[in-house]
Amino acid sequence: MDEMTKVRELRSQAPRPDAIRLAAGRRQLTEAAEGGVRARRLNTPHLRLGWRLAAVGAAATVTAAAVLSAQLVDGGEGVRTAPVAAMSQSYAVALGSPAETLRDAAATAERAKDPRPHDGQWVFTETSRVNATDGERPGLVDHSSWSRYDNPSMEGGKAGDDHSPRETYRFLNSLPEDPAKVRAKARAFYPKADGETRAQHDFRALTLLTDAYPAPPKGRAAVFRAMAAIPGLKADSVKDILGRDAIALSLGDKAQGDLRGQYLYNPRTWISSGSRHIAVTDNPGGEGGPEDHWKAGDVIISEAQESRVLVDDKGDTGR
């Protein structure tokens, strides 16, 4: 028996890890990828329906997430047992003047309560997501996670474009009132990506900031006001994957990639409620599986945020 055989035998009983063992790493990767989606996708759905929806604020209908039975892996992901169409055609109802809508958003955001976060806390997030290109899990996937409010490894530029919740909260707290200055600061906080126009960069940076949690009310309001001046901004009324009403903000520019992004908000509170990405062109998929086939207008990735709350310990869900 030669020495290579001996080397090969050493620790050869090492087990192959199962999916549960690998779930945390996969989650970290998909979270980074979701940040990347936001970093690169600056597109808008084409909207055909033109009627104005009155009294948006009264239109909030919250569908209890519990309607769909869920199987959750503790603190991780679970695939819903209820059948969900992997891809569904998008629909959107254009709202009136986006600037007016955003002024309402700013006024609503300003009236919210400051969560007054402190070091040592965690942000608990629960989302449901459908990613039709995920061949292994094409249905609705529940996901819960905790992220540390004060995470020094995500501060001071150590994590590139990513910032800890604390750094983002402080940034929002420091924003001036002047919308142009807010946009300039936001662009510096989330540096320009390759090929981005000014409007695309503004839109990406500001929608990322509206998605920040915890956030001081004044800072959020300043962000919505700054957003109102972005050329080509669209506001639409849509339903998310959980059947909830949402206002979708998007850019009217030509799509940069093959998907267009919409960022969703609760119409009553203007709290970020998710996002969705819609195919711009057909993808026949060739010999690929069903996950490689889609038509223009299909919702390819859709995420609904179910809850987000500050808790004192990792593992707490605030309930």
Partner: peptide, 13 residues
């Protein structure tokens, strides 16, 4: 969608 008939695109993965 309102794009002027983009050519079908296959994205092999």
């Amino acid at each position: 969608m309102t794009d002027p008939d983009p050519p079908p695109q296959h994205i092999p993965l």
